[in-house]
């Protein structure tokens, strides 16, 4: 055990603390993706609605044509007001979410104040950049959507990242994953000509998200969609001023019956 550390070590930076303990985030060595059927997670979306941001994801993870898992939670709570919706390699994405969660909590506890939203976004950018090497070798690429409620400006915020860590703020909605191409245009259409997403109430937003996930699953074999009979309901979370609320399966089933099947 080393001697007593100076109190100023790390300045609330959990990533530095981890690397000082010899922990590596990225996969090491030269990687060859051709030998591996990668597990990938598929359709996630985030949209601003009246109370904040709604974040939704299907539950399926696939490797090639094989369904690896159909209970994956791709929308992960990071702290009281932010969530990460992941697409891409679950191995890396779940690790990223965990690092992120610890980073925010570590910062808050050590520095005695909440990390700013800007600071949180930078942390995620850094994580994605550290993963670029692996992503370029065709393994472990992650394209997350970060959705948060900004308690200072009092509104929902959505950020989208590319594989290299570039960050874009989306004003209305963001989609990611293999099934997202099928619903991106639909969301644009809905927002432009049917009803502004930001004017939707929670029920309308949840209904639209369910419709989108089913549409994505219809065209994308890797998206699980809504399979009610198998209890495979998507994860839908509402991020508002009050915090994060996971929409329970009872409500999902009821809205699904009315808005998706009944319509």
């Amino acid at each position: 055990m080393d001697t007593m550390p100076p109190a100023t070590d790390f300045q609330g930076d959990f990533l530095s603390l981890l690397s000082s303990r010899g922990h590596r985030l990225s996969f090491g060595g030269q990687l060859d993706s051709s030998r591996l059927a990668q597990t990938e997670a598929t359709t996630v979306l985030a949209m601003r609605y009246k109370d904040g941001v709604l974040v939704a994801g299907d539950r399926q993870a696939t490797a090639g044509t094989t369904i690896m898992y159909n209970r994956a939670d791709k929308v992960i709570d990071i702290d009281d007001h932010s969530t990460l919706a992941i697409s891409g390699s679950p191995a890396m994405a779940f690790e990223m979410a965990r690092v992120l969660e610890y980073s925010f909590r570590y910062y808050k506890r050590s520095q005695l104040q909440e990390l700013s939203l800007e600071g949180k976004l930078r942390t995620l950018s850094r994580l994605i950049k550290e993963n670029v090497g692996a992503a370029l070798q065709g393994i472990g690429a992650v394209m997350p959507i970060f959705a948060a409620y900004d308690t200072i400006t009092d509104e929902g915020r959505i950020y989208f990242y590319d594989v290299l860590g570039a960050q874009f703020e989306m004003t209305e909605f963001a989609v990611a994953g293999s099934g997202s191409v099928w619903i991106r245009g639909t969301l644009y259409y809905e927002n432009r000509w049917t009803k502004k997403l930001v004017e939707m109430n929670r029920r309308e937003a949840v209904g639209l998200a369910l419709r989108m996930l089913e549409s994505a699953a219809y065209y994308d074999a890797a998206t699980g969609g809504v399979k009610e009979q198998q209890e495979m309901l998507p994860t839908i979370k509402c991020v508002t001023a009050d915090g994060i609320e996971t929409v329970d399966s009872e409500t999902l089933r009821e809205i699904y019956a009315e808005v998706v099947e009944g319509a």
Binding site: P5, D9, F10, F14, L17, L18, R21, H23, R98, V99, Y102, R105, Y106, R109, S110
Partner: peptide
């Protein structure tokens, strides 16, 4: 704090 967080994470 450092010990708790590295332990909790790893």
């Amino acid at each position: 704090i450092n010990l708790a967080h590295t332990e909790g994470f790893t």
